[in-house]
Amino acid sequence: MTVLPKDIPGDSLKVTVGTANGKPGDTVTVPVTFADVAKMKNVGTCNFYLGYDASLLEVVSVDAGPIVKNAAVNFSSSASNGTISFLFLDNTITDELITADGVFANIKFKLKSVTAKTTTPVTFKDGGAFGDGTMSKIASVTKTNGSVTIDP
């Protein structure tokens, strides 16, 4: 049996954390987006972790974005102690894959008090994996961190 590389060099799934701005007490939304989904033969499963400074940001909610089908079954998240974990699994293993680019999740943060303008990162942590529509590992994932700026 011969195994051929399935990824064209330079191609990767792009996962990007967005940015937001606000004043202390505001609730802002930071999107997590996927790009080049079709090039990577869709997404059938993924789990990953984001870190944030809990002294500056309070997670209000984490909701599935419009590219997630049947989110009540296929999407899960949790947030505590400065870490947000995400889990997606197409429970049907074929019919509810992520097949389009767009917003995977929206994180709502309540901004805490600061004395001066502060930009705090929302960054990928170690761990996690992504699988394509056949549940094979997506070897190349380009992750881009985001941030939230609090301006009193």
Rank of each mutant, 00 (worst) to 15 (best):
G127I: 00
E58A: 10
T115M: 05
K125Y: 07
T94N: 01
A38R: 13
V30L: 13
K69D: 13
T123H: 10
T142I: 07
L97N: 03
A105P: 01
D26P: 10
V15M: 07
D7T: 12
D126T: 15
G133E: 04
P66G: 14
A38Q: 11
V62G: 09
T19P: 11
K143P: 01
N70T: 10
N91M: 15
V148Y: 05
G133S: 03
M40L: 08
G18R: 10
A38S: 12
A72K: 13
T99S: 06
T29I: 10
I150S: 14
A71S: 11
V3D: 12
A105M: 00
S136M: 05
D11L: 09
T115A: 07
L4S: 10
K41E: 08
T33H: 10
L97W: 15
T19H: 11
T134Y: 04
K6Q: 11
L57M: 12
S113P: 05
S136I: 04
T94F: 15
D126Q: 15
A129T: 02
V32L: 09
E96S: 03
V148K: 00
M135V: 03
V73G: 02
V3H: 11
K137E: 03
V148P: 01
G44V: 12
N106Y: 08
V59S: 09
D90W: 04
A139T: 05
G65I: 04
L57D: 07
A35N: 10
V103A: 10
I98P: 01
D11I: 12
K108D: 00
L111F: 05
S140F: 05
K117F: 03
G133T: 02
V59R: 09
D151Q: 14
G146N: 06
T99I: 08
M135E: 02
C46L: 13
T118D: 06
D7V: 13
S140V: 14
S12P: 11
T16D: 07
F124L: 04
K108T: 08
S76F: 09
E58P: 03
M1L: 10
I67S: 11
K110G: 02
Y49T: 01
D90Y: 06
T99N: 06
M135K: 03
F104D: 01
P121F: 03
D132T: 15
T99F: 08
I107D: 02
V141S: 02
T2P: 10
V141C: 00
E96H: 00
P9D: 14
L111R: 03
P66Y: 14
V73D: 12
G10M: 11
L13A: 11
V28F: 09
K112S: 03
T19Q: 12
K110A: 04
K23Q: 13
V59E: 14
S55L: 08
L89D: 00
P9W: 10
A105S: 09
T119V: 02
I138W: 04
N42H: 11
Y49D: 00
L111T: 05
F48C: 08
T27I: 11
V60N: 13
G133L: 03
T45K: 02
T33I: 11
F104I: 03
A64N: 11
A20E: 09
G22T: 09
L56I: 09
F75I: 02
A20W: 06
E96A: 07
A100Q: 05
A129Q: 00
A100N: 07
V43R: 00
G44I: 13
K69A: 11
G22I: 08
V68G: 07
T45R: 00
V37E: 04
S113K: 06
A72C: 13
P9Q: 08
P9S: 09
D95L: 02
S113R: 09
A38G: 14
P5R: 02
I84Y: 02
I107Y: 02
D132R: 03
G44K: 00
N21E: 11
A54C: 08
V68I: 11
L89N: 00
N145F: 07
S76T: 02
K137P: 01
V60E: 10
F48G: 12
V148T: 06
L111M: 06
N106P: 01
T29Q: 06
A20M: 12
L57N: 11
S136K: 03
G18I: 12
K137C: 01
T144Q: 06
S147R: 06
T29R: 09
A129I: 01
V30C: 07
T134F: 06
G146K: 06
T118K: 10
D95E: 05
N70Y: 07
L57I: 12
T99K: 14
P31S: 11
N81R: 15
N145C: 03
L13T: 09
V148A: 08
G102T: 03
K125Q: 02
I67A: 14
K108C: 04
V60M: 09
V60I: 09
T45A: 06
D101G: 07
G22N: 14
V15Y: 05
V3L: 12
T94H: 03
A100T: 08
T94K: 05
G128I: 00
A139R: 15
T27V: 10
T115G: 06
S12T: 13
N21S: 12
A139S: 05
T45V: 13
T33S: 10
C46F: 07
S136D: 01
D26Y: 09
F75M: 07
K143L: 02
T118G: 05
G44D: 03
I107K: 00
M40Q: 06
T83S: 14
V60W: 12
K112L: 03
L56Y: 09
S55I: 13
N91H: 07
A64S: 11
T19F: 10
D63C: 09
D132K: 02
G65F: 13
T134D: 01
G18M: 12
K69V: 14
N47W: 00
N74M: 02
G133K: 07
I84G: 01
T19D: 13
I138E: 01
I150W: 07
V3F: 13
N81K: 15
Y52G: 09
T19Y: 13
G22W: 08
S140Y: 05
I8Q: 10
F86K: 03
V32N: 06
L87V: 01
G128K: 00
N145A: 05
P121E: 05
V68Q: 11
F104G: 00
L97V: 04
T45P: 01
T45E: 00
N91Q: 05
T149R: 14
A139C: 04
V32R: 02
N21T: 13
Y49R: 01
V32I: 13
